[in-house]
């Protein structure tokens, strides 16, 4: 690990914010509870969208209607997760920032967010094509399914990594 990241961690540990989070016993469990509830919102949203895409639920309604109902919730929740996550990091920066699993989780997060944006665009394009918009590119339904499932797997991988941070301290 570069010593600069280590120095940064040492600096963070001395800030008032870090002191506040680690000296008040109720703060970390409260942050973690909010974090899990936010993850639950993302998880259920992506489950609903994926199940609709593969055709297991809600066939009386379009894929686009499902995406319009649930995709925004993923974006509403991510800022709350980021703020809560940063507050938790402030308490013990080395435990997370220098943790291989945490670093992997952040890479997966970027991939999942990119994948979710891509999925939303494909669904809109597919709907436009189905509506007979001549300018809209043809979108293969199989393609939408594959992207949907891949994005779902990425979000699951983030949860797995999140749980394993605690077991990878010092690796």
């Amino acid at each position: 690990m570069p010593s600069s990241l280590h120095d940064f961690c040492l600096w963070v540990e001395k800030t008032n914010l870090s002191m506040f989070v680690k000296t008040n016993e109720w703060v970390v469990p409260t942050l973690q509870t909010i974090h899990i509830l936010c993850v639950a919102i993302i998880m259920s949203s992506i489950v609903m969208i994926t199940l609709r895409i593969v055709g297991l639920i809600g066939k009386d309604e379009s894929v686009q209607a499902f995406a319009a109902r649930f995709l925004p919730w993923i974006w509403y929740t991510i800022p709350a997760l980021a703020i809560g996550g940063l507050l938790q990091i402030s308490a013990e920066p080395e435990r997370s920032l220098m943790n291989k699993i945490f670093q992997l989780k952040m890479v997966l997060l970027v991939a999942a967010m990119g994948g979710t944006i891509f999925l939303g665009r494909k669904i809109s394009a597919s709907a436009a094509a189905a509506a007979g918009d001549a300018v809209a590119p043809a979108v293969n339904q199989v393609q939408v399914r594959l992207i949907g499932v891949a994005v779902f797997v990425l979000w699951i991988a983030i949860i797995v990594a999140g749980r394993w941070i605690a077991y990878a301290v010092g690796l």
Binding site: I36, L37, V39, A40, I41, I42, M43, S44, S45, V47, M48, I156, I159, V160, G162, R163
Partner: peptide, 14 residues
């Protein structure tokens, strides 16, 4: 446990 409760609780919230 975490994966299943987030799916379950999230769907209950919905």
């Amino acid at each position: 446990h975490v994966i299943s409760i987030t799916a379950t609780v999230g769907c209950i919230v919905i």
